[in-house]
Each structure stands twice: as C-alpha cells, then as structure tokens.
Amino acid sequence: MKVKYKHATGALHIGGGRFFYAGETYTVTDEEWEQLQWYEDLEETDDATLENPQIVLDKYTVDELKVMAKEAGIEITASMKKADIVAALEAIEVNAHVEAREGKAAE
C-alpha cells in the first residue's frame, strides 16, 4: 500500500528516525498502516503516478535538507549553502536512478 504526506512542504517525523516528506510516496505494509493511519497528516494513495515522484528539493528549508542529507550519509559543512546541499542530494538521487536502471539492464 502507498502512503503520502498530505502537505505541499515539510515533513512528518513519527519517531524512530522515520520521516515522511512532502511530495514523496512510501510503500508500507498493512501492519505499518494500522499504526500510521492515526496520523492525520498521512493518507493512503493508490495513484500510480506517485510511484516514482520527482522530488523538488528547493521547497525544503535548509534544516530539512540537512536532515535528509544526514540520512543519506552526506557530510554537511558549515560553509555549505542551500544550493550546495540540494546539489549533493540530487547527485545521490541521480546515482540511485542510474544504478537502478543498470541493475534492471543486467537482469
């Protein structure tokens, strides 16, 4: 089942290091949904167009981007500007996409 954060910007942190970011769709099990359905900011979706959403990182605050970067294993320095963090996150996203395509081609 697919779940998404209802709002156009921001994120929902439900604890345990788990975040739901605006503009992204997440696959959850039925058991997980039983726990998550009580969060008013989350909704179930079956929209196939959200399967692989294009994430628009510019809409996030610097603090939100720093959290995403940390979760992605990117080292953030004090001198990095918002554009630098966005570029680093987009590079990871592009690399993941290329790796996924190459993995499918090898099968």
Rank of each mutant, 00 (worst) to 15 (best):
E32H: 04
E32P: 04
W33P: 10
W33C: 11
W33R: 10
E34V: 06
E34D: 10
E34P: 00
Q35Y: 11
L36A: 02
L36Y: 14
L36Q: 03
L36I: 06
L36P: 07
L36D: 11
Q37S: 14
W38M: 10
W38V: 12
W38I: 08
W38E: 14
Y39Q: 15
Y39I: 11
Y39A: 08
E40H: 11
E40L: 07
E40F: 08
E40T: 08
D41S: 15
D41V: 04
D41K: 13
D41C: 04
L42Q: 09
L42A: 05
L42P: 04
L42C: 08
L42T: 09
E43D: 07
E44I: 11
T45E: 10
T45D: 04
D46F: 05
D46Y: 01
D46N: 09
D47F: 01
D47C: 06
D47I: 01
A48R: 12
A48Q: 09
A48V: 14
A48K: 11
T49G: 11
T49K: 13
L50E: 14
L50V: 00
L50S: 05
L50W: 02
L50N: 03
E51K: 15
E51L: 15
P53S: 07
P53A: 03
Q54S: 09
Q54R: 11
I55S: 07
I55M: 10
I55Q: 08
I55D: 01
I55E: 03
V56F: 02
L57P: 05
L57V: 12
L57I: 07
D58T: 12
D58I: 01
K59G: 01
K59Y: 00
Y60M: 01
Y60T: 00
Y60C: 03
T61S: 15
T61I: 01
V62H: 02
D63A: 15
D63Y: 07
E64F: 13
E64K: 06
E64H: 14
L65T: 07
L65A: 07
K66W: 02
K66V: 14
V67I: 12
M68I: 00
M68F: 01
M68Q: 06
M68V: 01
A69L: 04
A69E: 04
A69Q: 06
A69M: 05
K70E: 15
K70G: 10
E71I: 02
E71D: 09
A72P: 00
A72E: 08
A72Q: 09
A72T: 02
G73L: 10
I74L: 14
I74N: 04
E75I: 13
E75C: 04
E75A: 15
E75R: 14
I76T: 15
I76K: 03
T77I: 05
A78I: 04
A78F: 00
S79G: 01
S79V: 10
S79D: 12
M80S: 10
M80C: 08
M80T: 09
M80V: 11
K81L: 13
K82C: 04
K82F: 03
K82Q: 05
K82I: 02
